[in-house]
Amino acid sequence: MADQFIAATGTAGSAYSGLAVSARRKTLPGPLWLRVLLGAIIPLAVLGIWQLIVSLGLIPSYRLPSPASVVLAGVDLANRGLLFSSIAISVQRVLIGFVAGSLVGLVAASAVGLSRVVSSLLAPTLGALRAVPSLAWVPLLGLYLGINEDSKVALIAIGAFFPVYTTVSAALRHVDPQLVEAGRAYGYTGTRLLGLVQLPAVVPSVISSLRLALAQSWLFLVAAELLASALGLGHLLVDSQNNGRIDRLFLVIILLGVFGKVTDALVGLLERYLLRRWGS
């Protein structure tokens, strides 16, 4: 049915739909196992070279631990009950900070992107706040909120806020004015218009800003935990550095990479769903 109609449409319509289809097909064709295999080549090669260097004794073990000792460090931490509690508290901080920061960012972006008055009122201040290097907030947050969960989550929320706020408010300003006018002509105003035209139009920007915000959240988590914490992956990093536990350092870095990638993939799933629903 759909194919028949695409074939039957005029030149402009069919050319456009062809473009859209090719733009959506970003992944390689071929079966899933082939793509998984291709993606695994480099990590496996790195692991092999790593093992080789250690086995040949090219770098002393106090500078480069063996892969096995990194795994053992993980097992050891797990046995002490430290591994999972560290992971759990870090993931919890990231998720709360990320969700809170992005939601506030989305609301601020909607207000600034849609209302000239709010934009004139808020945009300069937010721009100035954004210019403050985010780590500069750490001592202040520590003082105000104490060295506890609140200050860490607040810092992560600040990290998540700005990518969402900046990207989405700019995108809202560039929504096709003709579509907005059409919405107005059919009696839609304010938040109803936002829900009909503007928000759906900026869904792709919202998603890419969420991905940025998530990466920022992990960055700020480690920053917060490095500076002041008694538990968490960042704390484990400082602790391991102080004790010369290079095997644990490697372990935590690998864990951060894995969890960062896993949470990003979750946003990717959300992206696929939203683009199917709201993409053109």
Binding site: A2, F5, A8, G13, Y16, S17, S280
Partner: peptide
């Protein structure tokens, strides 16, 4: 049930 990009200018 088609999306606007799938139809011709006259249909739109």
């Amino acid at each position: 049930s088609l999306r606007p990009r799938q139809i011709s200018g006259g249909m739109a």
